[in-house]
Design a protein around this nucleic acid. Structure first.
Length: 319
DNA sequence: ATTTAGACCTGTCAGC
DNA sequence: TGCTGACAGGTCTAAA
């Protein structure tokens, strides 16, 4: 099954899902879609979405930043943004969808959605994720592709493929593509008075970085998260660029999960701990200098850094 | 022009 | 056990 664990999606997590989906559903046809939380469908209007998508063949799966893209027959594409808790589950054929809760307990239905029952012969108990199904794609071969999302922040859109450029007009370069050069990154920092943390979270600067990998990239580059973006020297820009590429690549190599067995780039081979160096590591010693990692709040986001390795805040004031 | 609070949502966990 | 408040990896919008 795809997506059994709840993994919060940044670029590596979305990339991992895209790869799994690619091998599992490319070539399949969507017979019908059921929507249980209407706001999840952000474009076009729900009725049009439902009629347009029925009968389409899934021709390919791609990723753009944190967006998952399904190319559909008829020159359409689905754009899915998982936000905080959105996820995909692929159920084998012969499961049953049970929507009786809708009548029997309307209040519970508002948060819970339908139940899915395995074939009688199956003893497997599938994850409770199924109870947060917001959209159910029924495939022609009987499988169900579920979009689950407890917090209901995720958004799904359907567009003609010719509009792709316009849809992503405000999205920055793909950090793991040739488009993300040091020069282009440097250009994006020119005149930017905001702190580095906010800058990395800005999807127009680079696509796909979220709170975890922003903290990790800054740690890699030994740069203070509040350092002004336009104060970096050329060599600092190069190191930060390298840090972005490195932490995202490592994230993908580790199966898109931030917590996994890991032998690292900065230090010892941990036994079976996660490969994040600072994210949620407050109070633990820095792997480079042993100083305790700190947590601060920047732009209402928790931010983790090593106050010794990343102490270069001074230049933020002087330049 | 930027920064920031508020909104969108539900679950979990610590502390009383 | 039950309650309360803080917090969660994202992004848009309106107000300061």
């Amino acid at each position: 099954m795809i997506g059994d664990e709840r993994i919060m999606p940044e670029l590596p997590e979305v990339e991992y899902t895209a790869r799994q989906l690619r091998s599992a559903v490319v070539g399949s046809t969507i017979r019908e879609v059921q929507v249980f939380w209407e706001r999840t469908i952000a474009h076009p209007q729900l009725s049009e979405f439902l009629t347009e998508i029925a009968g389409r063949r899934i021709e390919g799966v791609r990723r753009r930043g944190k967006f998952l893209l399904l190319d559909l027959s008829g020159d359409l594409f689905l754009s899915i943004h998982r936000r905080m808790t959105g996820n995909f589950l692929l159920l084998p054929a012969d499961w049953e969808i049970d929507t009786r809760l809708r009548e029997s307990d309307p209040l519970a239905w508002k948060t819970r959605g339908p139940e899915f029952h395995p074939p009688a012969a199956t003893a497997v108990s599938y994850s409770r994720e199924t109870s947060y199904c917001r959209v159910c794609f029924e495939l022609a071969d009987g499988r169900y592709l579920l979009f689950t999302d407890p917090r209901k922040f995720g958004r799904i859109e359907l567009w003609p493929r010719v509009q792709e450029e316009a849809v992503f007009a405000n999205l920055g370069p793909e950090p793991l593509s040739d488009a993300f050069t040091v020069e282009r990154f440097a250009q994006a920092l020119v005149g930017r008075r905001t702190g580095l943390k906010q800058t990395l979270l800005d999807q127009e600067v680079v696509a796909g970085i979220g709170n975890i990998y922003a903290d990790e990239a800054l740690y890699y580059a030994c740069l203070h998260p509040a350092r002004r973006a336009d104060s970096l020297t050329p060599s600092e820009i190069r190191i930060l660029h390298d840090g972005i590429v490195t932490v995202l690549t490592l994230g993908i190599e580790h199966g898109g999960t931030s917590f996994n067995d890991y032998r690292d780039l900065w230090g010892e081979a941990g036994q079976n701990y996660n490969h994040v160096r600072v994210y949620r590591q407050e109070g633990k010693p820095c792997g480079r200098c042993n100083t305790l990692i700190e947590r601060i709040v920047i732009a209402q986001r928790s931010t983790h850094f090593c106050p010794h390795c990343q102490r270069t805040l001074v230049s933020a004031i002087t330049s």
